[in-house]
Amino acid sequence: MELYFLGTGAGMPTRGRNVTSVALNLMPERGTVWLFDAGEGTQHQMLRSPIKPGKLEFIFITHLHGDHLYGLPGLMTSRSYQGGDEPLTLFGPPGLRRFVETAFEVSGAHLDYEVRVREFEEGVVFEDEQFRVTAAKLEHRIDSYGFRIVERDTPGALDSARLTAEGFRPGPQYARLKRGETVTMPDGRTIDGRAYLGPELKGRTVAVFGDTRPCGSELELARGADVLVHEATYMHEKADNAHKYYHTTATQAAVLAAEAGVGALILTHLSSRYQDEAVHRLLEEARAIFPRSHVAEDFWSYVIPRRAE
């Protein structure tokens, strides 16, 4: 599981930072990629990255401001031309369906794959045997959401060497043993699969937030997450501006990370006023409160380790 940042700027693209988009690379876990936001130019950023549009399974839109949304029609259209024929599901606030349908109706674009649009308010927006995704409303000028992605715990590895040492040969029973079931083996012995499994692998938790100023719902979404991706549009000297325009400072994001007990904080959505040395000062501001802070750059990735590691 890896976060890959395609765009880390706020409002407008700059030479060094495109507007917002971050991919959650789940190729090892489920052979797909999830995308959070798709600002203008996201498909161009993908061309310079290892992220393949054809592998996109879900796109989550935090809110309907252009710097988080305007790249969606182009990305979806190009996906057809690049071998993407699997269904694509879009999750986002009410209005997302109208935006997508209008863009394709007016442009006459044609897609070679099924598109599913799921608009939500709050609560569980996706759940299967591997992951659960919850959304909660943040505090911004329009409805903006944060997502909490929880990977389910998985059983430990089957101790095949021990089974061999006890005289068992590989066979179809191994699949049931891996699930922790009690199995009668070909020689008549009955064994409990749980006794042959290594330590359970603890699932990881990722929190990805849209634009917001500090609010109560943030803490529950972020609590105990292995990594929190949070906007830091301003340094704290601009706290009045941040409040006025419904954004967050690096200091405020760091305070939240400390209170929530997250494993790491990644700051993104930086104002174009912060270049070069100013970015380092913004990072220092966050690390003074939460030392495990990072500032994302375009084409930078962060591998999310399992807690047991």
Rank of each mutant, 00 (worst) to 15 (best):
F5T: 01
F5C: 00
G7D: 03
T8K: 00
P13A: 11
T14D: 06
T14S: 14
R15E: 14
T20D: 08
T20R: 14
T20E: 11
S21D: 03
M27D: 10
G31V: 06
W34I: 03
F36C: 06
G39T: 08
E40P: 01
H44Y: 13
H44W: 10
Q45T: 02
R48N: 13
P50T: 02
P50K: 09
K52C: 11
G54A: 14
G54R: 14
K55D: 13
K55Y: 14
L56H: 09
L56Q: 10
L56N: 08
I61S: 06
H63L: 09
G66S: 15
L69N: 09
G71A: 10
S78P: 01
E86K: 14
P87L: 07
T89Q: 05
G92F: 07
P94D: 09
G95K: 12
F99S: 06
E101M: 08
A103T: 12
S107Q: 12
A109W: 06
D112V: 09
F120K: 06
E121T: 13
E121V: 10
E122W: 01
G123D: 06
D128K: 04
E129D: 14
F131C: 02
R132E: 15
T134A: 05
H140F: 13
R141C: 05
R141Q: 12
D143I: 03
F147L: 14
I149L: 15
R152F: 08
T154M: 11
A161I: 07
R162H: 11
T164S: 13
E166C: 10
Q173I: 03
R176H: 10
M185W: 01
D187V: 06
D187N: 14
R189N: 04
R189T: 12
T190D: 01
I191T: 04
G193F: 06
G193H: 04
R194F: 02
L197E: 04
G198C: 09
L201Q: 13
K202G: 02
K202Q: 14
K202S: 10
G203F: 06
G203P: 09
G210V: 03
D211N: 12
R213Q: 13
G216T: 10
G216Y: 07
E220W: 11
A222R: 09
V227A: 03
V227Q: 04
L228A: 08
H230W: 09
H230I: 08
A232E: 02
M235V: 12
A239W: 12
A239Q: 09
N241P: 00
K244P: 00
Y245R: 07
Y245F: 13
H247E: 09
H247D: 03
H247K: 15
T249K: 03
L256A: 07
A257S: 04
A257M: 03
A258I: 00
A258R: 13
A258S: 11
A264D: 05
A264S: 13
L267Q: 05
T268P: 05
T268R: 05
H269D: 07
H269K: 10
R273L: 12
A278F: 07
A278D: 11
H280F: 12
R281F: 15
E285Q: 04
E285Y: 07
R287V: 01
I289M: 00
P291N: 04
P291S: 05
H294T: 01
V295S: 01
E297W: 12
D298W: 00
F299I: 00
F299R: 07
W300D: 00
W300I: 00
S301V: 01
S301K: 11
Y302R: 02
V303F: 04
I304S: 05
R307Q: 09
A308W: 06
